[in-house]
Computed example of a mutant assay.
Amino acid sequence: MKKVKDMDSSWKIKYPEQNIYVMRDHNWAFAAWEIARLNNEIKPGATLLHVDFHDDYCEPLEKVTKIETRDQALQIAKDLEIFEFIKAAEGTGTIKDVFMIGDYNQPPREVFHSYTYNQFENQYRMDFFKNEKESHILDLDLDFFNLHAYQGIERNYDNNPFRYSEEYIKYHLKRFKQYYVEGDWDLITVSISPEYCGGDQTSQEIFDFFLEVFELEYEKFINW
């Protein structure tokens, strides 16, 4: 596998056995969800848990209504900004209800928002998993673990990281993994987002923690 410093903007892999899609840039999550729907890995109208330092909940410049092929999904994702992919997937009907965990000053009104994982556990977990017939997606941006990820602070873009401790990061990753072990996640998408993690080194460290906790270090992956 490539190191983060060698990944270009289109880098993305999948662990087929685990149904985990990993990408450098978050706009590719749109394609992952659409391809998963086309492959019957998830059902339309999936419930999403978006865990990210940013809400990424902006309308795409051009309306997206229907995706019928893998190539179409990839092309649309390529053209999306990194903050447009959730709304785009709502437009196609692939995503229905959106839950978020992130410390946003003004969280979107249309979503079920938690500032912390504990708040999600205590307030929304039962609502999130209430319908077993729906598909459930975990969408994790690794910049969630960098306190300097706020894009409005220009000096922190691609530098000046303030990473949480290894213990803190692994603790939260294990909590997300518990639902994977219990079979509650139908799909997991992970964005590395090196610029918002504070640079290649910090994002590599967090990515390595993810691979370790989810036991993917030696698993076979494919490019997609």
Rank of each mutant, 00 (worst) to 15 (best):
residue 37 R to T: 10
residue 7 M to Q: 08
residue 223 N to V: 12
residue 121 E to C: 05
residue 146 N to A: 06
residue 218 Y to G: 03
residue 19 N to Y: 02
residue 138 L to A: 05
residue 69 T to R: 10
residue 190 V to K: 06
residue 50 H to Q: 03
residue 28 W to S: 01
residue 136 H to L: 04
residue 220 K to I: 11
residue 27 N to M: 07
residue 42 I to C: 04
residue 219 E to G: 11
residue 155 R to M: 14
residue 95 I to M: 03
residue 92 T to E: 05
residue 117 Y to I: 13
residue 22 V to P: 03
residue 32 A to I: 10
residue 51 V to T: 04
residue 35 I to W: 11
residue 36 A to F: 09
residue 124 Y to P: 04
residue 43 K to F: 14
residue 189 T to A: 08
residue 215 E to C: 00
residue 146 N to M: 11
residue 165 S to M: 10
residue 86 I to M: 00
residue 11 W to K: 11
residue 55 D to N: 13
residue 188 I to K: 06
residue 188 I to F: 10
residue 66 K to P: 03
residue 148 H to I: 10
residue 21 Y to G: 02
residue 54 H to I: 02
residue 159 N to P: 02
residue 105 N to C: 09
residue 52 D to P: 07
residue 68 E to F: 06
residue 11 W to L: 06
residue 172 H to S: 14
residue 57 Y to S: 04
residue 177 K to F: 12
residue 55 D to T: 08
residue 183 G to A: 07
residue 158 D to K: 10
residue 68 E to Q: 13
residue 198 G to F: 10
residue 119 Q to K: 11
residue 40 N to C: 10
residue 112 F to D: 06
residue 155 R to K: 15
residue 148 H to R: 11
residue 146 N to K: 10
residue 54 H to F: 05
residue 97 D to N: 08
residue 98 V to I: 05
residue 40 N to Y: 08
residue 168 Y to D: 01
residue 112 F to C: 07
residue 97 D to P: 07
residue 113 H to L: 03
residue 14 K to A: 15
residue 46 A to F: 10
residue 52 D to N: 09
residue 67 I to S: 02
residue 116 T to C: 09
residue 223 N to H: 14
residue 112 F to T: 12
residue 100 M to T: 12
residue 125 R to M: 13
residue 141 D to H: 06
residue 8 D to N: 15
residue 82 I to R: 00
residue 156 N to M: 02
residue 169 I to R: 11
residue 91 G to K: 04
residue 161 P to L: 03
residue 96 K to H: 06
residue 188 I to R: 01
residue 16 P to W: 04
residue 205 E to N: 03
residue 72 Q to M: 12
residue 166 E to Q: 13
residue 180 Y to S: 11
residue 184 D to R: 15
residue 161 P to N: 03
residue 7 M to W: 09
residue 15 Y to K: 02
residue 166 E to W: 12
residue 221 F to K: 06
residue 86 I to C: 00
residue 139 D to H: 12
residue 181 V to A: 13
residue 201 Q to R: 11
residue 64 V to L: 04
residue 128 F to I: 12
residue 35 I to D: 03
residue 6 D to Y: 15
residue 86 I to S: 01
residue 213 V to E: 01
residue 171 Y to D: 13
residue 191 S to H: 08
residue 45 G to V: 01
residue 191 S to P: 08
residue 109 R to D: 12
residue 158 D to P: 01
residue 11 W to H: 14
residue 9 S to V: 14
residue 156 N to H: 15
residue 101 I to L: 01
residue 179 Y to M: 01
residue 183 G to V: 06
residue 122 N to S: 12
residue 65 T to E: 13
residue 80 L to V: 00
residue 207 F to C: 04
residue 110 E to C: 07
residue 34 E to H: 05
residue 109 R to I: 08
residue 142 L to G: 00
residue 119 Q to W: 01
residue 48 L to E: 00
residue 208 D to C: 07
residue 46 A to W: 07
residue 33 W to K: 02
residue 182 E to I: 04
residue 30 F to T: 08
residue 98 V to S: 03
residue 72 Q to I: 09
residue 153 I to V: 14
residue 15 Y to R: 00
residue 183 G to I: 02
residue 23 M to G: 00
residue 43 K to W: 08
residue 9 S to A: 14
residue 15 Y to W: 09
residue 23 M to C: 08
residue 103 D to C: 09
residue 68 E to T: 13
residue 87 K to V: 05
residue 224 W to D: 09
residue 129 F to G: 07
residue 212 E to F: 06
residue 126 M to P: 05
residue 82 I to Y: 06
residue 177 K to C: 05
residue 81 E to R: 10
residue 145 F to A: 00
residue 17 E to L: 13
residue 207 F to P: 03
